[in-house]
Write a protein that binds this DNA or RNA. Sequence first.
DNA 1: TTCCTAATTGAAAATCATTTTCAATTAGGC
DNA 2: GCCTAATTGAAAATGATTTTCAATTAGGAA
Lengths: 147, 147
Amino acid sequence: MNVDFSALTTTLSQHGYKLTRQRRAVVEVVAHGQTRLSAADVYAQAQRACPDLGLTTVYRTLEILAELGAIRRVHLDDGCEGFAPASAEHGHHLICSNCKMTIEFEDCDMRKLLDRVAARTGFKIEQHWLELVGRCPKCLQKAAARK
Amino acid sequence: MNVDFSALTTTLSQHGYKLTRQRRAVVEVVAHGQTRLSAADVYAQAQRACPDLGLTTVYRTLEILAELGAIRRVHLDDGCEGFAPASAEHGHHLICSNCKMTIEFEDCDMRKLLDRVAARTGFKIEQHWLELVGRCPKCLQKAAARK
DNA sequence: TTCCTAATTGAAAATCATTTTCAATTAGGC
DNA sequence: GCCTAATTGAAAATGATTTTCAATTAGGAA
C-alpha cells in the first residue's frame, strides 16, 4: 500500500534531484502516508523531523513527486489540493470521508465504459479521473458502536 | 445537452431565490454552456449582457446552482474550480482537452467496480467522482486536417 | 579529504482564486 | 405604490500557492 522510502529517494536521485534533508523529510511523510494529505498536512508532519523546513519546499517537493508519479493528486472537498501515495502506474483512490484514510486501487476496469462513451460521442478519450469516497471499515465500526 | 434557461429560473424561484438581473445573466451563460467554465469565464460572458455584474455575484450564483444540482463541479487542471451543466440527476462529464467542450453522460455503470472495491476494502462507498478527458470530434478533425 | 558549483533553500513578497463585509439597491409580495 | 428581506458589488480579507533572490549545501570531481 505504501510506497517505499528508499525506492523513492533512489528515483529522485536518478532523475537528477539532490537528496536534501528537507526532501527526505517530505518523502518520509509521503511514503508512510495512510491518508490523503494537503501540503499543509505534509508540512506539519515533516517539520517535526526537519524543523528548518519551509512550506515552499514542501510544495516544490510534492510537485516533483507528483511529476515522477510517486504521488497522485486527489480532489479535496475543502478546496485545496491533496496528494495520495501512488504505488501503481495507473491507479485511483478511495478515501474515507471521515478519517481521510486513503486506499489505492488499480483495476478500475473502465474499458467498456470508455469505449461506449467514445463510440457515442466521437471523442478520443485519453484520460480518466476517478475518485471514490466512502466510509472505511474502522469508521463504520465506530459509527455502529455509537448506536 | 443543455439545461433549460426557463426551467432553471423556475427552480431558483421555487427555492425562494429572487430572480435578479444578475442571476438571470449568469443562468443564461450557464444554460447555454457547451464547455466547462470557470467562475472567471462565466463572469466574462455574463458581464456583456449585464455590465454591472460583479464577480462576487457570479461566485454566489454558481454556488446556488451547484447546490440545486443545475451545474456540477468539475476538476480543472489549472487549479481553479470549473462548472459544467448538469441535466441529469446523476451524471459525469467528458471534456475536450483542447477546446474544453464538455459533454455530460449518465450511464457510468460503475456498480460492479464499486462492489468489487467495497468487497475488497471493507469500505462503504458513498460517492464517486469521475471525469473523462480527451479530444472531441471537431478537434480530432482539425488535428487530422493539419497533417 | 577538499573544493567547487549548480541545485536548493526559505522568508518575504507576490499572485491568484475565492469569500466576507456592509452600505446601497431592488425583487416581488401585499 | 409601499415595504422589507434579499441581493448587490467594491473593497477588504482570506487562504492556498508561487515567485524572488541572497544564503546555504549536496555531491561529483580532483
